[in-house]
Design a protein around this nucleic acid. Structure first.
Length: 278
DNA sequence: ACGCCCGCCTGTAAGC
DNA sequence: TGCTTACAGGCGGGCG
């Protein structure tokens, strides 16, 4: 389940391989992956001949800037992988939906069994902004940089804390795994109302968010049992070994020893400690 | 405005 | 052992 840390690790791995490279060919065979376009040929025509001059990230979206003025936007969804492959003759993995051929002979391949992910080409505005991503709130890692800023963001919506953390319009990049981990570190219940948080609790939430996301990036993200998350070189992450609550239902809390609980809300699992989180 | 469900997908694992 | 079912879940759409 790639969330902000996993997408950031992919970005950091991909960037040195593609920066300054020219796109020489595109094979877009996965119709659902390029569902915003009419055909693979349309995607190819929009990209071939352009140079990748930056690899950016906003929330869970990767943005490969393709000069002049265009960008390839990629969302990994549930099971998407973006791989750099030095040898174009190496066999394709199953569910390879999009291949970019670069001018050094290497390839970037998008692989996605569950096809929740997507890729699309956009025209960038003069200031570099992308209207298709305008609905996203500030990036949880790079755009939210103070307790005061986080408290102001939280105060803009009256909803449950977990709903708020996972709402990409409120703050971008956090999904089910990291919302649970952040709330545990902040010692806050998932069903706390955003308008009930004190200034002190808002400060704890900021520090927990920053520390959790940074630690997850440092450990290469989280690779789960069923999921397929790997970085641009096919390497698994290691942060799953540091999860305090996610997927640990029935196991003891690492802080107080109480059994980690699993609740369901909005059709998905929430893991938390009934003693540590208030 | 908000809460919550559904549909979209495939691979894995648990249950009968 | 073999089949069925549940589950994983980001996101957009829809309904109450």
């Amino acid at each position: 389940m790639p969330e902000l840390p996993e997408v950031e690790v992919v970005r950091r791995g991909l960037a040195p391989q593609v920066l300054g490279r020219r796109i020489v060919c595109v094979e877009a065979t996965g119709a659902r992956t390029i569902r915003r376009h009419r055909s693979g040929d349309e995607v190819a025509a929009a990209l071939v001949g352009r140079s990748i001059d930056a690899v950016d990230r906003h929330g869970k979206y990767l943005v490969l800037r393709a000069e002049p003025r265009r960008a390839l936007v990629v969302h990994l969804g549930m099971s998407g992988q973006l791989r750099t492959v030095p040898d174009p003759a190496s066999p394709h993995l199953a569910h390879t939906h999009l291949v970019l051929g670069l001018d050094d002979g290497s390839q970037v391949r998008f692989v996605d069994p569950r096809t929740f992910g997507e890729a699309f080409v956009v025209e960038r505005d003069d200031d570099g902004s992308i209207v298709e991503l305008a609905h996203l709130g500030p990036d949880a890692l790079t755009d939210v940089t103070s307790k005061e800023q986080l408290r102001a963001l939280v105060a803009r919506r009256r909803t449950g804390l977990k709903t708020w953390l996972m709402d990409q319009r409120a703050i971008a990049g956090i999904g089910n795994i990291y919302s649970d981990e952040i709330m545990f570190r902040a010692r806050l219940r998932w069903d706390r109302r955003t308008d009930s948080l004190t200034a002190r609790e808002g400060g704890r939430l900021y520090e927990a968010m920053r520390d959790t996301l940074r630690a997850a990036v440092e450990h290469g993200g989280s690779s789960l049992r069923d999921a397929q998350y790997v970085d641009a070189y096919g390497r698994q992450g290691g942060f799953q070994h540091h999860h305090a609550v996610y997927a640990r239902a029935g196991e003891p809390c690492r802080v107080c020893g109480r059994t980690i609980a699993r609740d369901r809300f909005a059709g998905r699992s929430t893991f938390w400690c009934r003693r540590c989180q208030r």
